[in-house]
């Protein structure tokens, strides 16, 4: 019981304090740029490019796809920074020098990124409605909110896996950028999955976001929660697998980092 209480406290304190301590976007101007302007720029770019290249009728397709894809900003970059930031601060060694449960420490950090990522998606949808004419009159808002939450969770699972790389390499940002831009295509945010080559489709369905985006498009088109439940369960399962693999890799990479002496290289 005492261990459970300690771990709950560690979860919350780790979530709140490490978010303030490490999240570089916490400064108002940087936060606004990343949370408000960056989603707007991405949506403008792909919505106008997509509708120009295809048809104005496809506007909703691009708005919903890119609004959900914004979850990857917190999911990929935020999660990686949660681990890489400790390394840059020189605090990673001090954390690994404590007997704290690593799973609890880093799940606490994932929690704040999930909340932050979901907020980012909500802001992106707001831009879609206010500036780009996205019609949500036929949409079940609670179901869409659940979809946003589940998709952000699964994306953070991939982020945890990416964050593990920060334990053994200092150049994780290169990989982050690659994955972020790969998701723009492979998740179906900007190209219908069915039009992608078969081998890319195979990759699409083992990535987070793919099913979440598909579910959101159905919901915006008027579908109910029951109709998208299989997609949401699939998205949740993908996220769970990434969290599991991420955690296993985290424990493995901690040992690797201690063997290679890379824990506090910065």
């Amino acid at each position: 019981m005492k261990t459970l209480t300690n771990n709950l406290r560690l979860f919350w304190q780790g979530a709140l304090l490490s978010y303030v301590a490490l999240f570089h976007w916490m400064r108002p101007i940087q936060y606004m740029a990343s949370k408000i302007l960056m989603p707007l720029a991405q949506m403008f770019f792909f919505v106008y490019l997509g509708t120009f290249a295809t048809s104005a009728d496809n506007r909703t397709f691009y708005i919903v796809g890119n609004a959900l894809q914004i979850a990857a900003v917190s999911g990929i970059y935020g999660m990686t920074m949660s681990i890489g930031g400790d390394r840059d601060n020189g605090t990673l060694g001090y954390i690994f020098g404590t007997p704290a449960n690593r799973l609890v420490v880093f799940m606490g950090r994932a929690f704040m990124n999930i909340m932050d990522g979901a907020l980012g998606v909500v802001i992106a949808f707001t831009w879609g409605v206010v500036l780009m004419g996205l019609d949500l009159s036929n949409t079940s808002i609670p179901a869409l909110a659940l979809t946003i939450l589940i998709t952000t969770i699964s994306t953070c699972g991939l982020g945890l896996l990416m964050g593990c790389l920060a334990l053994i390499t200092v150049n994780v940002m290169f990989v982050n950028n690659f994955v972020y831009f790969m998701l723009l295509i492979f998740s179906g945010a900007n190209i219908p999955i069915a039009q992608l080559p078969a081998w890319i489709q195979a990759i699409s369905y083992v990535l987070p976001l793919t099913r979440g985006i598909a579910a959101a498009r159905l919901l915006v088109g008027g579908a109910g929660l029951l109709e998208v439940t299989p997609l949401l369960l699939g998205e949740l399962a993908v996220g769970f697998v990434y969290f599991l693999v991420g955690y296993i890799l985290f424990t493995v990479f901690e040992v690797v980092a201690k063997r290679r002496g890379t824990l506090d290289v910065f």
Partner: peptide
């Protein structure tokens, strides 16, 4: 059973207060 300090200024969360740094590490030690 151990505590350790490596010289230099790194190893603290600069954006947190001194007390919040200690609170966080207290939770890490349970």
């Amino acid at each position: 059973r151990i505590g350790f300090i490596f010289g230099g200024e790194r190893g603290l969360y600069w954006r947190l207060s001194g007390i919040d740094n200690l609170r966080y590490f207290a939770s890490l030690y349970g």
